[in-house]
């Protein structure tokens, strides 16, 4: 069976538009709502889902996602909940790819091999290990490959050309370009330089490139989306979900935000 990430990106390519990737933290705003959140995101325009695995020390994340992690951990959300959520989501959605995103320590504590085996069986399609650069991922690559879980690597503005090539050589699923030097959700995205950087990445890899960090609205999504295969919305979404107390509030929060971004991306003709 083809990996859902590959299928989704080839569909997007056929449609000639950039994809919309959404990031939320598992268990936030409440563990009873995780699956509702995922379905609402798909309903309102997400093409691919990133599900954050809570960690007490998320060093690459800004305050919004830090607080989402803290709320989830306060409600004892761990990897078992992540797996349960993926399984439950798959009952009604076989098509939308899910990438699990997080830090190594909780996964290693659970047991790396055990976790990724269960994640693949539950219906996850890729893993993004934030604090695991290519130098340290050697032990995991074969395991993930055997399970057909795509390992999503980050590229940053600081990544030098030679290193970009080494990362691209290992890439599968998609490459995630971090749009600026900083943490998730920060407010200093300069669209011009991000666009220039994305154009430089063309031809680096056969694998699609998604861009994220700091995209907050339809205009930003459209501007960067014209130069990438997908854009990622995280903090701006997590912020809006924070107060939702039930499934209908979740749906309303997503409905009031995501469709504008979806529509902007649907209007983009990739240049």
């Amino acid at each position: 069976m083809t990996n859902r990430i590959d299928t989704r990106f080839s569909d997007l390519r056929a449609a000639g538009r950039p994809g919309l990737i959404t990031f939320v933290t598992a268990g936030d705003p409440d563990p009873t709502l995780t699956v509702d959140v995922l379905h609402a995101l798909v309903r309102h325009g997400a093409d691919l889902l990133e599900l954050g695995m809570p960690f007490s020390d998320p060093m690459a994340d800004g305050p919004v996602i830090q607080q989402a992690n803290e709320r989830a951990i306060a409600k004892h959300v761990g990897l078992a909940h992540v797996l349960d959520s993926v399984r439950a989501f798959r009952v009604h959605d076989q098509a939308t790819p899910i990438v699990l995103m997080g830090y190594l320590n909780p996964i290693e504590r659970f047991g790396f091999e055990r976790f990724v085996t269960e994640a693949a069986a539950a219906g996850a399609d890729g893993m993004l290990l934030v604090d695991c650069p290519i130098e340290e991922s050697g032990n995991y690559e074969a395991t993930l490959k055997a399970l057909d879980l795509k390992q999503i690597f980050l590229l940053a503005p600081t990544t030098p050309p030679e290193r970009r090539r080494r990362i691209a050589a290992k890439a599968s699923g998609f490459l995630y370009y971090v749009s600026f030097k900083g943490i998730t959700g920060a407010g200093h995205l300069e669209q011009g330089s991000a666009v220039a950087a994305l154009d430089e990445l063309r031809g680096l890899s056969q694998v699609p490139i998604a861009v994220g960090f700091g995209i907050r609205d339809a205009q930003g999504a459209a501007t960067l989306g014209a130069h990438a295969e997908a854009i990622v919305i995280g903090s701006a979404l997590v912020e809006r979900l924070a107060g939702a107390g039930d499934a209908s509030a979740v749906d309303a929060a997503v409905a009031s935000f995501l469709p504008r971004i979806r529509d902007a991306l649907h209007a983009v003709r990739r240049v």
Binding site: M59, A60, L104, V130, D131, C132, P133, E135, E136, F153, L154, L155, A156, P157, T158, T159, P160, R163, I167, V178, K181, G182
Partner: peptide, 20 residues
């Protein structure tokens, strides 16, 4: 050369910090 003391140490940071 990459900072490993046996199985310990290393560089477990997000990509942005690898070049710095």
């Amino acid at each position: 050369a990459r900072g490993h003391f046996g199985p310990y140490g290393g560089s477990f940071v997000a990509e942005t910090l690898m070049a710095p």
